[in-house]
Design a protein around this nucleic acid. Structure first.
Length: 278
DNA sequence: CGATGATGAGCAC
DNA sequence: TGCTCCTCATCGC
């Protein structure tokens, strides 16, 4: 499931498996009407911008625009006819055989170059892209009175960051999620941005989100060292009620703009800056 | 075996 | 703020 590291990781996988190969394209489930247009074409390049992915085919100006949403998922099979059905989009290449299936995406449609430009223009800097300019994000945070915990999820600020990276990066820098963006110190912004630039490529490489420093690894806490349920080792994400890996305080949770926020009240204390009048 | 919720986001009220 | 879309693993009965 999908924060920006997943779209980037899968773009790479698609390029390796299908790049410059002729493909068979279908929509077994029928809801991707553009699938037929792509059948028999040559796959060119998949690219990721935050949580959005665009896939180009030779001699076609439109590209496939994909957004996984909350539950969308890609599957790869080392065969031309995997025993599945009802995928939104299915791509197959032959000898060597490989099949991709896309299930449950929020968006899977053909988009014109103009439409793609519009989508990309709305996104903030993506920590996974070398061309990202963090100053855009810095400026937007500095003039916002929304809590930094809300701003972290705003794709116009950090493209690709989702609920796990939000909770974990705020935790790693002891930042109060409820502090208005305008009160975030410049040095704190630098810590957050640099951390995303460091952590997210690891997520791309490993296909999971790990954020715990070695000295805080569960072994050191006497816990079972197995991977957490969501697929990575984390400090606070979905660990509500469990002991903070650093201080032992039960991890807190609260719904913030429709999503579950997780944080440690002791490691990320309410900032006094928060109470200053606008 | 039905209910629930999940790494998301647009939209109506 | 809450509903909606989409899928599927997991949980409680």
């Amino acid at each position: 499931m999908p924060e920006g590291h997943v779209t980037h990781r899968i773009s790479g996988e698609l390029n390796r498996e299908f790049g410059h190969r002729e493909v068979r394209s279908t929509s077994p489930q029928g809801k991707f009407t553009g699938a037929d247009v792509l059948d028999g074409r040559v796959f060119e390049t998949a690219q990721a911008f935050g949580k959005h992915m665009f896939i180009g085919f030779e001699e076609l100006p439109e590209q496939v625009h994909i957004h996984l949403g909350l539950i969308g998922k890609f599957f790869f099979f080392p065969e031309a006819d995997p025993p599945t059905e009802n995928a939104r989009w299915r791509l197959t290449a032959f000898s060597p055989d490989v099949t991709m299936e896309l299930r449950g995406p929020n968006i899977c449609e053909l988009s014109t170059p103009e439409q793609i430009d519009t989508i990309v223009a709305k996104l903030g800097p993506d920590p996974l892209r070398p061309d990202a300019d963090p100053e855009v994000a810095r400026a937007r945070i500095r003039r916002s009175s929304s809590p930094i915990g809300v701003l972290m999820m705003d794709q116009q600020i950090f493209a690709g960051v989702g609920n796990i990276y939000r909770a974990e990066t705020l935790y790693r820098h002891h930042i109060d999620p409820f502090m208005p963006g305008k009160f975030l110190r410049g040095a704190e912004f630098d810590l957050l941005w640099d951390d995303l630039v460091e952590l997210m490529p690891l997520g791309v490489r490993d296909g999971r989100i790990d954020t715990v420093y070695p000295e805080h690894m569960p072994e050191a806490m006497g816990r079972d060292p197995r991977v957490d349920k969501h697929g990575g080792e984390v400090y606070v994400y979905r660990r509500d009620g469990q002991a903070c890996l650093v201080c032992g305080t039960p991890v807190s949770t609260q719904v913030l703009t429709g999503r579950n926020l997780f944080w440690c009240k002791k490691c990320q204390p309410r900032s006094r800056r928060r109470t200053v009048k606008d």
